[in-house]
């Protein structure tokens, strides 16, 4: 269960070594430290083309003291499935296969392989770290980019469609475990990874990961922006298993819409929403309300 008080195990620095190639304020190593705390070296990270392919550092070095398999863009779920099946066949049960893919590699080009692997229910944990655009190639729009956001391929009027809700799609797959998480709440992520670790079959975690470079905010605010997404209700933390949705601790106070901070507080910190109009903010508000309605319906 989620507990605000439980400290994270300090072994996380054993796996995520200093000297990676991340930008200042990058959410990726923050999340990896939590992964390291949960799995230690007994983890095989499967990484398709994304920022993380660079963040681990160039050959012959690696900043992750666990196994890392870099794969073609669309294939994180497929390769992870193959590894998991081989481990199972060889009787290796203490190693965890974690597909670690960005929003483009998941919601766009990797969607078919993700859906296929989920339907076949391979024993893997799939983490979509969602920085809401193609950051590695230079901030191009993905289907997970939110409405109204500037990107280099929505350069003047901003994105005109809402964010693709991948967790919702994964719930529809009927897999044993689906969760949303945020790098702003490492204890919550830790608890979710621990639960995922204990479940056999396909586990999906949609991890919100604010990117200072792409979202145009000061690198010192990564955690602040991540928390504001939750506090404004823009990002809802929950777990879905055994046919029931459970709103997670950090999001619980915000079930009551009156307790949510105004979404402007979240938007105004980010340069990508600099030119957003009041009408578009209103449209985002409607989208947030609809998400909450849906989440409450399932909980």
């Amino acid at each position: 269960m989620y507990s605000r008080k439980s400290p994270l195990p300090y072994k996380m620095r054993d796996v995520v070594l200093p000297g990676d190639a991340a930008c200042p304020g990058c959410p990726i190593p923050i999340a990896w430290k939590v992964l390291g705390a949960v799995f230690g070296e007994k983890m095989i990270l499967v990484i398709p083309a994304c920022c993380s392919s660079v963040v681990v550092g160039p050959y012959p070095y690696s900043s992750i003291k666990a196994s890392v398999v870099h794969v073609a863009f669309a294939s994180a779920a497929a390769v992870a499935s193959g590894i998991a099946e081989a481990l199972e066949r060889r009787g290796i049960t203490d190693v965890y296969v974690v597909a670690w893919a960005g929003d483009g590699g998941t919601a766009d080009i990797g969607m078919a392989s993700l859906s296929g692997a989920a339907e076949r229910n391979h024993n893997i944990i799939y983490i979509m770290y969602d920085n809401e655009a193609y950051m590695n190639t230079g901030i191009q729009r993905s289907s997970a980019t939110p409405y109204g956001a500037w990107t280099t391929t929505t350069p003047i009027i901003g994105k005109t469609e809402h964010k693709k809700d991948v967790a919702k799609i994964m719930i529809a797959h009927g897999i044993p475990y689906v969760a949303t998480a945020s790098i702003g709440y490492p204890h919550d992520l830790y608890a979710k990874l621990e639960r995922a670790k204990s479940i056999h079959g396909f586990k999906f975690i949609h991890l919100h990961a604010p990117c200072p470079v792409g979202w145009r905010f000061d690198p010192r605010y990564t955690i602040k922006v991540a928390k504001l997404a939750v506090e404004t209700g823009m990002w809802i933390l929950y777990e879905y298993y055994d046919g029931k949705l459970r709103i997670s601790g950090p999001s619980k106070p915000f079930i009551d819409s009156k307790r949510r901070k105004p979404i402007e507080e979240y938007l105004k910190l980010q340069g990508r929403f600099r030119k957003i109009t009041p009408e578009k903010v209103e449209e985002i508000r409607k989208y947030v309300d609809e998400n909450w309605r849906w989440v409450k319906l399932l909980s």
Binding site: P58, Y59, P60, A86
Partner: peptide
């Protein structure tokens, strides 16, 4: 790559490598 010891495969490599 079976998790027994850390192995990285496919890392970004410089042109000469």
């Amino acid at each position: 790559v079976d998790g027994r010891e850390p192995v990285a495969i496919g890392n970004l490599a410089w042109p000469e490598d």
